[in-house]
Amino acid sequence: MSKPRSLELPPRTRARRLRTARGDFAVLDTAPRGEIRGTALLLPGYTGSKEDFLALLGPLSDAGYRAVAVDGRGQHESAGPRHRGAYTRRALALDVVAQAAALGEGPVHLLGHSFGGLVARAAASLAPEAFRSLTLLSSGPGRVARPQRVRVRALRAALALLSKERVWRTTRWLDSRGEQPGAGDPPEIVLFLRRRWMRTRIVQLAATGRLLNRDPDGTLQLAGLGMPLHIAYGDEETVWPVEELAAAAHRTGARHTVVTGAGHSPNVSHPQELADRLTAFWDLC
């Protein structure tokens, strides 16, 4: 999950519903400033949402790219079924292929942050013709680090036993490491995080958490895609082992970006630098 620092929409951005052959999805759609150089579809991570990319949308737009951040099915403001079978890897990948088609601009640059990278890989494998490139942001083709797997297992177990409100309060307390929940966060951000949590379906959290923890190594799958690849992350990444991310970039021949001083969410902490790295890659595709 990323935590946005501001909820203000960047210039040329509108919140809307994207109608696709697989239903409607909530998106933040940012038009480019000046002549369009390309379109990027941005997929958020586990427990996250389209707002995770708010800080990145403006710099991408300034560089001439249309950037569309999306809530996946059952996530925040996108509706989703109540049964676990609706949240398989294939179902989520088909949603992304439909979203790309609905943008109406031909093949798009696909970026997946964290769990969104898992979905992006599946979508690119399913319909490579729909995408000009694939970027995994703070997301590896291998399994997440053990502490994160333990955290996801604990969250799934808590959701099966406790109310969503109680799980929210507990996770906030744990995140604050015993300090007053929400300490240091502006009130509007705390309200947004709670609203996002309460709107996301429990079945989505349970099913996608299971996928995240059981994701097989997809390095060979990535190497065989035949499209431009980009693996980007912060040098202080904690969810995936950085040495494994570097090895995956080397084995697949992917463009390799390491953002100095960034953790799991360079899209929040270093949006301008990340946008510069992304657009330099996209310009070559």
Rank of each mutant, 00 (worst) to 15 (best):
H270Y: 10
A31C: 03
A183H: 06
A249N: 07
V258P: 07
A206M: 12
R84I: 13
G209N: 11
R172L: 11
L220D: 13
D215I: 00
L229G: 10
V27N: 07
D52L: 02
S265Y: 13
A69P: 10
P11C: 00
V190M: 06
V150Q: 14
R166V: 11
F115N: 01
Q75F: 06
L136S: 05
R84L: 08
A93V: 07
R90F: 10
P186L: 00
A246I: 01
L56V: 06
R194M: 07
E8V: 13
S265A: 15
G74N: 09
G253H: 08
G142I: 02
R90E: 15
C285E: 00
T39R: 04
P44M: 01
L28Y: 09
A248H: 11
D175A: 15
R195Y: 04
R22T: 13
P32S: 04
N213S: 09
R14V: 15
R210P: 05
T171N: 09
A63F: 06
L42I: 07
R255D: 06
P128A: 00
S139L: 00
V108P: 14
A100C: 05
L284F: 02
Q148Y: 14
S78I: 00
P181K: 02
A55P: 12
T279W: 08
S78E: 05
R132P: 06
H264F: 00
F281H: 15
S163A: 09
L155S: 06
P44Q: 04
E188T: 07
D175E: 12
A232I: 15
Y233A: 09
M227A: 01
G116Q: 03
T260N: 06
